[in-house]
Design a protein around this nucleic acid. Structure first.
Lengths: 166, 166
DNA sequence: GAAGATTGAATTGTCAATCTTG
DNA sequence: CAAGATTGACAATTCAATCTTC
């Protein structure tokens, strides 16, 4: 719609950026998800759950923490883990110290699924993202993403996954 | 997981960019959607449908074209339009020239909903995105997004929305 | 009462027919 | 038979209780 009369509307430059960026926001996640389902038979979200667990020493995390790392609500995670548990990829364990806590633990079978899926996924991320960008643009994207994340999560000890990247 | 032995794994620089960018990919759409629902009572997808229609001279578009512009499948669009039609925001019209085509047309009521929602939405996009970025970074983001979109849609006369931005 | 987690109901999205027109 | 669109069945997500433990 025409909003030239609205306060603080976007400049032409901003509109161009916004239209393109929204396209990426919508299309890239579905492309990643479709590729993961076709090549490995799991959703991209399930992949990230397996991936986060595999990064830890004990292959396990409390549900709440896993939800943060996988960018999900606790409710969503719980539903998804129920399905993954049925397929034998993860198991639930009670925490002896704090009996409110449930650990999600990666099984051997789950790890194998992840190990099969990972190379293809990395290749897809390369193809769709990094092959299209110069090294300079990769740095720009990292900087831009972190700035946006700061706005999205002002409390902001983001990223929660930072631990395993040090 | 540790994949140092896999072919073409990501560099540290690429991993940093990827972790942050995935965060944006997941969190920004849900933030936009949540804000739209709270402040205007419609989903971000419904907003973009109304918005695309309002950009046209006749306030209407064929379903297929609208699906392209809104980054949706025809099936999803049809379901959503059924709900929007019930709320009186759009109406469906047959095309006299080609009777396979259905036009989706914005109603006056739909336009008013859009007009109420738009300023707040623009403000949110500013707050979450553009206020966090320098003018240079806005240009970088546009360039990077277009490069990614070229990979995602190699046929690529993207963006389909270009018409109204000339 | 708040934290951690789960559950069921309702909404929304996807997928595979189906229908009509060109 | 392909293009445009719709529909219904099914899967996934969200939302609002609910339950237990601290």
């Amino acid at each position: 719609m025409t909003n030239d009369d609205e306060p603080r509307w976007l400049t032409a430059e901003e509109q161009r950026a916004w239209v393109s960026f929204v396209g990426v926001l919508v299309k890239l996640p579905s492309a990643l998800d479709a590729d993961m389902r076709n090549s490995a038979g799991l959703s991209h979200f399930e992949y990230s759950v397996l991936s986060e667990l595999s990064e830890t020493a004990e292959w396990m995390l409390p549900m709440s923490r896993l939800a943060e790392l996988a960018n999900a609500s606790l409710s969503r995670l719980s539903h998804v883990l129920t399905r993954m548990e049925k397929r034998g990829w993860i198991e639930r364990l009670p925490c002896p110290e704090n009996r409110r806590v449930t650990y999600a633990k990666l099984t051997k079978a789950g790890f194998e699924i992840l190990a099969e899926a990972a190379p293809g996924h990395v290749e897809t991320v390369r193809t769709l993202l990094f092959d299209a960008l110069s090294p300079t643009q990769v740095k720009q994207l990292a900087t831009i993403s972190n700035r946006i994340l700061t706005k999205l999560d002002p409390a902001g000890e983001w990223p929660p996954a930072a631990a395993h990247l040090k």
